[in-house]
Simulated assay, not measured.
Amino acid sequence: MTFEACAGIVERGDPDRFLAVMAAPVAARRVLFPIYAFNVEVARAPWVTEEPMIAEMRLQWWRDALEEMASGGTVRRHEVTLPLADMVDGDGARALDRLVAARRWDVYKDGFEDAEHFNEYLDATAGELMWQGARALGAVNREDVLRFGRAAGLARYLAAVAALEEKGRVPLLDGRESAIAELAREALNNIARPVPNNAAFLEAWQAEPILRQIAKEPWRVAQGTVGLSPFRAKLRLLRWS
């Protein structure tokens, strides 16, 4: 139940964040890998079963684990829970519960209720994840980090739309190309990295060029062809780190 186990989970389940963490200083890796491993485990919980009740139980297990961390009591043994408990304080554990609760949307096939619901989902997942990583590494301006994380999360989300549709989900409120391009343009207004710099921001290394790609060629979202070439992606990560 070690840092190395968390790194392996991220490498297998979230390779882009794995590359970002490996570009960070060693001390930051020990903070970020448990947080990102937690995110991998929670994000995949709704997808490992077709039974909503079982998926809900899996998410509740993580909510109960976070409550144990927040209360300062004995934390259930798991290859992620114990390293995570060493990296987040009570406030962090309670905040991450918001992320788990938001993932309940992934269990079902209903669409988002409205734009507020969609933005709340991005805030609670991508935004909160980035904030807790950045906070654990010393960041203090929550709103700037949440805004940046939400924009980066939108880039990832739009890249996943075609896969979500294949799974029977309704991922967008408005799937017209003009509406998708507008989402990307709005997010570009929030994509500047907060200052001072923080290793948790590295996870957004591809966000800006992907959003620019979508704003220019929104048809890529439906076709599932959003993304950078491996060479361009790695070059950008080198420049960011």
Rank of each mutant, 00 (worst) to 15 (best):
A93Q: 04
P230D: 06
G153D: 06
N198A: 01
G73N: 06
I214W: 01
Y121E: 01
A152D: 05
G72T: 06
L228G: 09
L164E: 10
E51W: 02
R232V: 13
D144M: 09
I180R: 10
A187Y: 04
A139P: 10
V80P: 10
E177I: 00
I180Q: 03
A85I: 04
G224F: 01
V31M: 06
E56K: 12
H78M: 04
F201V: 00
V80H: 08
R220M: 10
G224W: 06
A23D: 01
G73E: 00
E165S: 15
R185M: 04
R135N: 09
A136Y: 00
G138K: 08
T74R: 15
G224M: 08
F201L: 13
F231D: 11
N197C: 13
C6T: 02
C6R: 05
R98L: 09
V21S: 11
A20N: 06
W61N: 09
A162H: 14
A23N: 06
G13F: 00
E50C: 07
A179I: 00
I9Q: 03
G73Q: 05
T2P: 07
R44F: 08
Q60W: 11
E113F: 11
W47Q: 13
E177G: 14
A126M: 03
F231K: 14
E182I: 00
P171H: 11
A70F: 02
A20Y: 00
R63I: 09
F112L: 09
A233M: 04
Q213G: 00
L202V: 01
P209E: 00
E67M: 11
I9H: 03
V48C: 09
A163G: 14
Q213I: 00
V145H: 11
A20R: 06
A192C: 07
A134Y: 05
G227W: 03
Q223N: 14
A192S: 13
F148V: 03
A163R: 15
R147W: 02
L66A: 05
L235M: 12
G127N: 08
N197E: 15
N198Q: 03
G92A: 04
G73S: 04
D144I: 01
A152M: 01
T2G: 13
T225V: 07
P171Y: 08
M87Y: 04
R239F: 10
E177M: 03
V26K: 15
R94V: 06
R77Q: 14
V75E: 07
A204H: 08
R30C: 07
E67L: 12
G133H: 01
R193A: 10
I191E: 06
A101V: 12
W62M: 04
L122N: 02
V48G: 13
Y157N: 10
Y121W: 08
L82I: 11
V100F: 10
D174V: 05
A27F: 09
G153W: 05
D14E: 00
P218G: 10
R220C: 07
M87S: 13
W62N: 04
M130E: 11
F201R: 08
P171F: 08
P15E: 00
G13L: 01
A192Q: 13
